[in-house]
Amino acid sequence: MSVGTIWVLAEVAEGGVASITHEMLAKARQLSDDVVAVFGGDGASIAEEVGAHGAGSVLATGDLGGALPGPSIAGAMAAAIAGGAAPKAIMVGTTYGGRDVAGRLSVKLDAPVITNIVDLADEGGLVGTEPIFGGASNVKTKFTSDKPGIFLIRPKSFEAEATGGGAAAVSALDVPDLGATGTAVVTNSFVEASEGPKLDEAAVVVSGGRGLGESDKFELIEGLAAKLGAAPGASRAIVDAGWVPYSYQVGQTGKVVKPDVYIAAGISGATQHLVGMKGSKTIIAINKDAEAPIFGVADLGIVGDVHKVLPQLLEALNARG
């Protein structure tokens, strides 16, 4: 069964197609037999990879010449729709770039965005599922008009799956004159160095929060992470406090992680944080407050002082070699 054409915003990361794009293509293919990847860049550079993940074709703007891509991609999509293209749904990843596209496009189409989607189903029309209250409840929402439905999809909601399809056919997507809205320009890009596995791909994540007490104590988290071959993460509270960079943040703002094992040390488990790690296979929590919400999702909860438990744990692990 097919709901009609689905557009998937394609993004790249570190040279390849981003995992969020693969994940959305996998879900789009379940819902539709006409899946189109829309790309703000050179279509030929992604045609093979998105084709192998289920896109039948690519609509690409070509090089955007340094312009911040959101307005160009949204403008090009809206122009194509005004010119007769009729996607039933437009799937956009909840990424830094994706939200720009969804917001701009929403105004151009005068159509709302359904946000924070973790599941999309055809129930006589597409219905998106959004977790609220830290995942305690799920809200299902549908659009009430016939306009293309814009869905902002959270990373790690669907399993990426290669189909073995051939390279997708590339067509040009023209960017109209954007006036002032297109004048923001990227002049330089910086990659923040990070060691060890990537936070959103690591099999084990060790995160620290306010319970560590002071910024120096984040060493305990880094030490345990290094010992376990894990990625270090952080709650929003200590990122806001400037202890660690934003790239460490796990949560609603920040990264969504689904590791095999998630260790939360000195993290109380605010809704903001739970949303980003609740999907972990196994959760271990250490917190001195027995009432902390983190224990509600923990498979193993230690009510205790991280300053005592973490050094003991590290010593025991070191003793094992």
Partner: peptide
Amino acid sequence: QRQTEAGYDDVTCP
């Protein structure tokens, strides 16, 4: 300085 997945971009805007 605009946050990105990998680090940050310098962006100029009128």
